[in-house]
Design a binder for these strands. Structure first.
Lengths: 231, 231
DNA sequence: AAACAAAAATGAGCGGTCCTCATTTTATCT
DNA sequence: AGATAAAATGAGGACCGCTCATTTTTGTTT
């Protein structure tokens, strides 16, 4: 064995820089063109490299999109987490989550679009990193509901998962207007309406229950009639 | 001008038959493979023709999918319309709509998937025939809500569009479990939970206000006492 | 500085898609 | 049968994501 020359290792952050350039370019292209219309050629060009090079850093176009979304999602989760520290009360915190989520569609339309329309259609979405992030994000709402139940502020019988699905599904449907580019949304108004519709159904009843009140009335009225009304 | 020979016109329903064959083949392939994995070559093969021939009857792959979905959607609308004739009462009719829609995801998983994941991502979805059908379909719910408000069974302040978005969005989110192939759904249970969560928030208060109930009780109790309880 | 090897970048081209269009086949009328 | 319009064909164009043999760049050793 001859003493072979040492490997010519480059500074490691040079690779990271390239990666960054590619991800940035990809985010830009995906955001403006959507997935299908975004071509690897254009992403490469914007990163100042040639198409084949991209594949030294990412396995596939889909892989690249996952990376773009994952980075964005992590920022979003951090933002919500931070924001929630400054809100107290179940109702207010739920409203914060709703409004914050609506804001996503207004401010990050392109990426939200990518998330809904492209990422989630993957049959194996539930095995991806994005799904984990998605669960962490949705957990902000379910945790709030569970807490509300424990505090007695929400009814004991409500099912957190259903409320969560109603909230996120409802928001998403409202947001289709934005995603399709037809006009905007008064997100404060929409947040109020969504919570205004849901809250009375999930908040704990202050009074015993309307049934028992009805019973009390029925009993009393029967008695009164029996005794000869207004004696 | 020589008397030119008449055009050799074929029986018109021959074209319709071909069209039918193509649509049927397309539905089958789209349903099982999804949009991206469905190839025009396979659709043509299943219709017993060659790829180019399909383009004599349909403009594009997307056009063909639109046709498949449109036919299915029309059947669905007819089914809901017919079913509603046999249900009375706002709550029961809303529950019917919810349950029927949940059934779509169980029974027509492939097409529902196509609708959500492929059709709606078209930027020009809102100019398509499918969108009109979508509106007609969703109108079953909004009409019910409007009717409920008019009948006094639902609160006067609720916003029908928000309730509609919560319902359809919520159902859709619940149904992702089915679409992704992970287990099924107890749709009766889910329907009950969705309505159970929403209804208390949108139903009109039976009594004018709890104060008046208290008043009624107070008056009655006073009377009863005055008359000597349990005489 | 020169030799050298590993790492990084290249770009031609492969296999696949939807779709077009000049050509051929089929069906109908005189 | 012969003519002609309608219907069907299938080779190939344009474009895509992706691969890989080749070339260029970079850092280390002598």
């Amino acid at each position: 064995m001859t003493t072979s020359r040492r490997a010519a290792k480059r500074s490691p952050n040079r690779q990271l820089l390239r990666e960054r350039e590619i991800v940035n370019a990809a985010r830009l292209v995906f955001e403006t063109a959507g997935y299908d219309n975004a071509s690897m050629a254009e992403i490469a060009a914007r990163a100042g490299i040639v198409e084949g090079t991209v594949y030294l850093y990412f396995d596939s176009k889909k892989d690249l999109m996952h990376r773009v979304i994952a980075e964005w999602y992590e920022g979003l989760i951090a933002s919500v987490s931070e924001g929630l520290t400054r809100v107290v009360g179940v109702r207010a915190r739920l409203r914060f989550c709703i409004l914050r989520h609506l804001r996503v569609y207004v401010e990050d339309t392109g990426l939200a679009d990518l998330m809904i329309r492209e990422l989630r259609r993957d049959r194996k979405f539930y095995e991806t990193e994005i799904y984990s992030l998605n669960k962490r994000y949705a957990a902000f709402v379910t945790a709030e509901i569970l807490d509300g139940i424990k505090q007695g502020e929400l009814g004991p019988d409500i099912v957190p998962e259903i409320v969560r699905d109603l909230i996120f599904g409802g928001i998403e449907h409202c947001a289709y207007r934005i995603l399709s580019g037809r006009g905007g949304l008064d997100i404060d108004l929409v947040a109020d309406r969504i919570l205004g519709t849901l809250w009375p159904g999930i908040a704990a009843q202050k009074e015993a229950s309307s049934v028992s009140i009805e019973d009390r009335i029925a009993r009393l009225e029967k008695l009164v009639v029996a005794n000869g009304e207004e004696s």
